[in-house]
Amino acid sequence: MKTLKGIAAMGAWTSVVILVLYLFNAHNHYHHFGWAVLIGFILLVTHVINMVLYFNIVGKTPYRWFK
């Protein structure tokens, strides 16, 4: 259950970032190298924050063998 909560939080956070990128028309500017670097950095930070969110929500529970 905690795993699903963690995945849901990652999905929600990623959706917010994608929406913001869309509002800034990132999908129309990616051919410009500077934009590509910026979008790449934002997505990488999003990924790192996703991992931290997941770790904080699930703790060590998913890796335990015994309930």
Binding site: H27, Y30, H31, F33, A36, V37, I39, G40, F41, L43, L44, H47, V48
Partner: peptide, 22 residues
């Protein structure tokens, strides 16, 4: 963190190459 930063060139390459497709 540095480990994830090592992946940045890959991300930039594919975004620059194809946006959403990338």
């Amino acid at each position: 963190i540095i480990g994830y930063l090592f992946s940045l060139p890959t991300l930039v390459l594919f975004i620059w190459a194809g946006g959403l497709w990338g």
